[in-house]
Nucleic acid binder design. Structure first.
Lengths: 124, 124
DNA sequence: CGGCATCCTCACGGATACTG
DNA sequence: CAGTATCCGTGAGGATGCCG
């Protein structure tokens, strides 16, 4: 995220969506947000189980980025075995709320392309 | 988009956001959507100028995907020189509307990370 | 003007092993 | 349990050139 040519709206037309996309741009970020949204806090392994297919490394890095972006919070308890709880910040909750219309669009949307094959996997 | 392991919400919890992310997931898609939203129709070169940094190939492929996803429409006129106009479909307009809260979030958001360097390029 | 055909890069994400 | 460390593959995206 240093020398990358980030997309930007033309001459001062800050639409803000690009900013948001930076935050939720990761492959699993919205799913993580969603999982955190359903419950006040989530543990690491819990998230991993809730999101089948994600690896530990990716989950960890995504969580770190979400944290750095101020939408997720990480609280670790000094216990044995260790316990870490992730939750949404106020801003993260607002982000999730802002995501709802998009989710509704995705649900109500007329199936144009082949949007069937990608969901036909038994998960959970 | 064939054998790719697409993210999915756990056990039937269809949040719809993943579906939406498939459509707007491209690097410049939201910017294209935004550009199409501001005006009833846009020409190819116009879009290219409106979105500095995007290459013709990427713009073309993104437009084609947006078209395949039913959110953009392409109309070409048999003239010399050739003229092609892109516009949003009804569903594309709804998508854009659904994107507005996200845009608002992006604009109002407290700057946590270094969200300054990526915009510091003279464009337009 | 509005593309498509190639070739190539590189960052994102995946697999595996190891640690406090 | 909750991660790091390392290596690697992939594919979206970028550069360039040509065409109707």
């Amino acid at each position: 995220m240093t020398t990358l040519n980030r997309p930007s709206a033309p001459d001062g037309h800050v639409c803000g969506i690009d900013t948001a996309m930076e935050v939720i741009g990761g492959k699993w970020k919205v799913l993580i947000l969603w999982a955190l949204h359903e419950h006040p806090y989530r543990r690491f392994g819990e998230l991993r189980r809730l999101i089948p297919g994600i690896t530990e490394k990716v989950l960890a890095s995504h969580l770190r980025e979400l944290e750095a972006d101020g939408v997720a919070r990480r609280v670790s308890y000094d216990e044995t075995p260790p316990r870490v709880e992730y939750s949404l910040t106020e801003d993260g909750i607002r982000l999730n709320d802002a995501l709802q219309p998009l989710a509704a669009w995705g649900r109500e949307r007329p199936i144009t392309r082949e949007l069937g094959e990608r969901a036909g996997r038994g998960l959970g």
